[in-house]
């Protein structure tokens, strides 16, 4: 039933495809585009493993229809930084041991990008609430909080340097 042509920008590249009405964005990203860094953890928009950036905002791609993303600008974990380089958040997660099994990590990083965009200098409490839609079963969150703090500091330094 219902096929639709969609065109969107994913990680800077334009993508056109014909998709079913019901195709979930997370499956389009993972299976049609083979961008498997975006994961599925719960199916009910509780865990955040499927979090991607859509038009500058973090969203849960398991609860979003692909057709609705027609015309959107999407960033997945694969597009966060140029190959071989780390964004401040990626570097901070590495430095602070903010990941164990890595399954929640892409969603956690994308979510943190949005958090730091709207709140560049968050308190620990604001970080904890800010990532509350992303579950991690390994780290106990202490080091994720530290990772986001480190990235915030580095981003502030960079901003200051560029002024």
């Amino acid at each position: 039933m219902g096929k639709h042509n969609v065109t969107m920008t994913i990680n800077g590249e334009s993508v056109t495809a014909e998709v079913d009405s019901r195709l979930l964005l997370v499956h389009f990203i993972r299976e049609n585009l083979d961008l498997t860094g975006t994961h599925i953890g719960c199916d009910t928009s509780n865990c955040g493993a499927c979090t991607i950036m859509l038009d500058g905002k973090s969203i849960k791609s398991c609860t979003y229809l692909t057709v609705r993303a027609d015309g959107a600008n999407i960033t997945t974990i694969e597009g966060v930084a140029a190959e071989g380089t780390n964004s401040h958040l990626q570097q901070a997660f590495h430095d602070q041991h903010g990941l164990h099994c890595g399954f929640c990590t892409p969603g956690m990083i994308i979510r943190s990008m949005d958090l730091l965009k709207t709140n560049p200098n968050p308190t620990e409490e604001e970080i904890r609430w800010g990532i509350s839609g992303n579950l991690c079963r390994c780290t106990g969150y202490n080091n994720i909080v530290k990772s986001v703090q480190q990235a915030a500091t580095e981003m502030a330094k960079e901003k200051e340097a560029s002024v």
């Binding site: 975006t38 590495h94 990083i109």
Partner: peptide, 21 residues
């Protein structure tokens, strides 16, 4: 020391069972 396995996970290059096609 920092973890050697991190790089692939940080860039979406982890290879979990559902990623194997």
């Amino acid at each position: 020391v920092k973890r050697k396995e991190d790089a692939r996970f940080l860039h979406g290059k982890g290879n979990y069972v559902d990623d194997v096609k």
